[in-house]
Design a protein around this nucleic acid. Structure first.
Lengths: 68, 68
DNA sequence: AAATAACGTAATATATATTTTACTTTAAGG
DNA sequence: CCTTAAAGTAAAATATATATTACGTTATTT
């Protein structure tokens, strides 16, 4: 369940804590999502996209083959 | 949690049952997702995208404002 | 090198997505 | 009409995402 959250968060100099607060989640949840060890809900994915000013494809899209 | 699953499924003349089997879920789950009463997991969203040959943005993207 | 901020991570608890079973409703074809 | 396939829906059970609490690790600053 790979994604670009960490990378994009860094580009915007945002801390896990900040992102967590923006999306109404916990720092731990963000951490696990960034590590790709979580299967987040669509709602949380969308919240993260809004917080990072990106779309779903830009943050969470993974080609069918490279999946996992 | 609006989306375009139903619309796209119709365009491809696919039954809920077929889609459910392709993505490894239940017909009921597909039904509720189509009705927008569910908050599906990213994994399931991706599976649905693959089954419909679409990307996340094409199926599940909702602008920040029109969000529910 | 100590102190502190930021992040990794683990255990348990809670909320909720998903399944299972089953019944109803709707639509299409004979 | 009658039959049947397809879809809506509901209750209970199960799986799993997320929160909470807490502690370890890494990096940064002084």
């Amino acid at each position: 369940m790979k994604n670009k959250v960490k990378e994009l968060r860094f580009q915007q100099a945002m801390k896990q804590q900040e992102l967590a607060e923006k999306v109404g989640a916990t720092r731990q949840t963000i951490s696990l999502i960034e590590k790709g060890e979580y299967n987040p809900s669509l709602k949380l994915c969308l919240a993260i996209c809004y917080a990072l000013s990106k779309t779903l494809d830009e943050v969470f899209w993974i080609g069918e083959d490279e999946d996992e």
